[in-house]
Simulated assay, not measured.
Amino acid sequence: MINVIVTYTVKPEYVSENKNHIQKFLDDFKNLDQETFEYKVYLKEDGVTFVHYSNYINEEVQHEVLNVPSFKEFQRLRDESGLNGTHKVEILQSI
């Protein structure tokens, strides 16, 4: 199992647009086998920091999920919005 947490902070004026892009790829993820991965997104109390939690049964599934076109578009637009070095990816190990 591969477990990942991604956090990043966006500019306040980009929050609504980011939420829309997230909803689009989450809707597209519903067309994939939901038994092989989990993907959840949270917004922290500060209203501008997003937390993406995902887990995948293997690298093949992770690759499939992360290459959905709407997800790749979300990433491009998010990165272009100006993250100011706040993007952080953490790989978690199960205990």
Rank of each mutant, 00 (worst) to 15 (best):
R78N: 14
V65E: 02
V48S: 05
V48K: 06
N18R: 04
P12C: 03
V41E: 00
Q62N: 09
V10Y: 07
L66A: 03
K44A: 13
I22W: 03
L26A: 02
V51W: 06
V89R: 15
L92A: 12
V10W: 06
Q62C: 02
R78I: 06
S94I: 13
Y8V: 08
K88D: 07
E38A: 10
E90L: 15
E64N: 08
N67R: 07
Y53A: 12
D33N: 15
V68K: 06
S81Q: 05
K30A: 03
T49W: 12
S16E: 09
D79T: 11
L43R: 08
N55K: 15
G82L: 04
E64D: 07
Q23E: 13
V89M: 13
Q23C: 01
I91F: 14
V6M: 13
Y14M: 06
P69L: 15
V4H: 07
G82C: 04
V61L: 03
S54D: 08
N20F: 01
S94L: 13
V10P: 01
S54N: 10
V4Q: 14
Y8K: 13
K44Y: 05
Q34R: 13
G85A: 09
I91Y: 14
L83V: 12
S81T: 02
T7S: 11
G47N: 07
V51G: 02
L43D: 00
Y53T: 12
F25P: 08
D46C: 00
V48W: 01
L83M: 08
M1N: 04
H87A: 03
V48E: 07
N58P: 01
N20C: 02
V41Y: 08
L83A: 05
V6W: 10
N55C: 11
D27R: 14
N58Q: 08
D33K: 14
L32W: 07
T7N: 10
E64G: 00
I2M: 09
E59D: 14
V65K: 11
V89S: 09
T49M: 09
V51E: 11
S81L: 02
E80H: 04
D46Q: 04
Y56C: 01
Q62R: 14
D28H: 14
F29R: 04
E38H: 10
L92G: 08
E59R: 14
N67I: 12
D33W: 14
E73P: 00
I91D: 02
